[in-house]
């Protein structure tokens, strides 16, 4: 464990909690892409099946259970409890355009053609594009609630911190995982446009609105 991975995990946890609290407190999922949340639930489900097969540490196990629990709770709040506030018209990204290519790539490019490894690879590739429906929805509505921008900031920051974690681990442990690194770079690049808007607008107290 190193400072980049720890702050990365805490940033990820903060994002997940911020979103859950936003929906729960405002009793509304306006502006939130339910499709991205479905993808995140799928990412955690396919990545954390090793909860059933191996124990790494209490931290590892507890964080995985929290991530999975919050992901499904968020999907439940969006599609069941606060379904009336779900903006399905603007959440129109075709998930099959992501899941099918990612599934194919996971079968072609992986470290080992075993069941758990393919699922892990699928979850890594899927996570790198899972935010696209959310970013697409914001581009369609042309704006985002400030609390939603904080959610996106911490979510984007987490994988950026993981990039530093991988540099650290390569230098000090000689460890690296090219699949996770390449997907992590792609994932972080997808946030760059948002990061620019977040820093230049939201941090200056303005609302995040895209030029219509």
């Amino acid at each position: 464990m190193n400072i980049f991975r720890l702050t990365g995990d805490l940033s990820h946890l903060a994002a997940i909690i911020i979103l859950l609290l936003k929906i729960w407190k405002t009793r509304s999922c306006a502006g939130i892409s339910g499709k991205s949340q479905i993808l995140f639930a799928l990412v955690f489900t396919t990545r954390y099946l090793d909860l059933l097969t191996s124990f790494i540490s209490f931290y590892n196990t507890i964080m995985k259970l929290i991530y999975i629990g919050c992901a499904y709770a968020t999907v439940y709040l969006i599609y069941m409890k606060f379904k009336a506030t779900y903006d399905g018209n603007h959440d129109s990204f075709r998930l099959e355009f992501l899941v099918v290519p990612v599934g194919g790539l996971a079968c072609l490019v992986n470290h080992d053609f075993s069941f758990l490894e393919i699922l892990w690879t699928f979850s890594i590739y899927l996570e790198s594009v899972a935010i696209l429906p959310q970013l697409f929805m914001i581009s369609k509505t042309g704006e985002a609630e400030t609390i939603t921008t904080h959610y996106l900031f911490f979510l984007g920051l987490y994988r950026a911190l993981y990039l530093f974690n991988w540099i650290w681990r390569f230098y000090f442990e000689g460890f690296f995982d090219m699949i996770a690194i390449v997907a992590g770079v792609v994932q972080t690049i997808l946030y760059c446009d948002f990061f620019y808007l977040y820093v230049t607008k939201v941090l200056k107290g303005k609302k995040l609105s895209l030029p219509a």
Binding site: R5, D9, H12, D50, S54, I56, S57, N60, M63, K64, Y67, H111, D112, E117, W120, Y162, N165, E173, G174, F175, F176, D177, M178, I179, A180
Partner: peptide, 10 residues
């Protein structure tokens, strides 16, 4: 070290 499939990250 260098092994890529030690899955100790979240």
């Amino acid at each position: 070290p260098g092994k890529s499939n030690q899955k100790d990250e979240l």
